[in-house]
Write a protein that binds this DNA or RNA. Sequence first.
DNA 1: ATCATTATGGACCTATGATATCCATTATAA
DNA 2: TTATAATGGATATCATAGGTCCATAATGAT
Lengths: 161, 161
Amino acid sequence: MQFSKSTDYALHALIHLAQSERRNNIGIKELCATLGVSESYLSKIMSKLRQDGIVRAVPGVNGGYELARPAGEITFLEVIQVIEGRQQLFECSNLDSQQHRLLAEDRAARQDQDCQGQSECLVKKVMDGAERQLHQYLREYTIQSVLDAASKECNHALNKK
Amino acid sequence: MQFSKSTDYALHALIHLAQSERRNNIGIKELCATLGVSESYLSKIMSKLRQDGIVRAVPGVNGGYELARPAGEITFLEVIQVIEGRQQLFECSNLDSQQHRLLAEDRAARQDQDCQGQSECLVKKVMDGAERQLHQYLREYTIQSVLDAASKECNHALNKK
DNA sequence: ATCATTATGGACCTATGATATCCATTATAA
DNA sequence: TTATAATGGATATCATAGGTCCATAATGAT
Ligand code: SF4
Ligand code: SF4
């Protein structure tokens, strides 16, 4: 249970793009030099980010990438979901087991019409809750958050002198 | 980014053990019949749970498994960590990149003696925060939680009649 | 219009880890 | 002593992550 390296790369690439917003179109060469990743691999990742509308890309001379939206509107959650996919953290794999009938289906049957038919037990509910927690947290941080914190600390350091 | 099936199996097995606490020593045969999983695979998982002191095992006739501790003291987090391992959700993979120097090391250098030398940037901090959130949530639920909720709903259903 | 440049996407490869099985051995209680 | 049940090593299979290469398409500069 770990985030993939691709997610790491994607976040770092976006931060570099955000830091360089003045001059448009950062090429893949500059990106992979900054991140220390191979050009061919990073371009796959950038392509994904483009398909999901997080960056814009323009080919040709002086082409490259730029953020498609303000850095403050690109959340960690979004980036992670683009790269990792959107499967659930926990997926029931025993839906026809005796135990599932015991914990989920019989229970659902007892509850008659109200709250009907979701046929999920507490295990699933707890895990889904964990996922919601995680998502809520990751939605609160954006690419801009990282830049802000960096420059705030910079100012703080300057004020001390 | 998903929990493995093994984690699924482990949780379900522990719930069955907890439900059967009256009679000790549930054999692997009963467990895998209840869960609908192969005997050979589940035994690996049970072995891990034993090595980490979550269940006790006794071989031989009428042997089997039982919880090593009260179900209320076995948290989701613990089970997950035993099966999934304890690596961090996010591990920096570019610690010698130009960008890391920019975001983390230079910053650390600026801060002189106070708050010294951790050399981590905000990305890492956000991700570690996400992990803490997740862990805190998963620590609040135990195997007993699932049983309690199941029986409470059962009583509720009875009272309605 | 041509050209150098840059992103794109398909094909491909390798390494790693999850999932799964089999069996010989060990430990235990009856 | 013996039948039984857990253990751990070896092995197989499969999916995914991680990574490379190249032919093609798109673009701005000339
Ligand atoms: S609903 Fe509950 S019992 Fe059924 S498969 Fe999912 S986790 Fe297991
Ligand atoms: S500390 Fe920050 S910049 Fe450095 S590798 Fe980790 S996430 Fe990237």
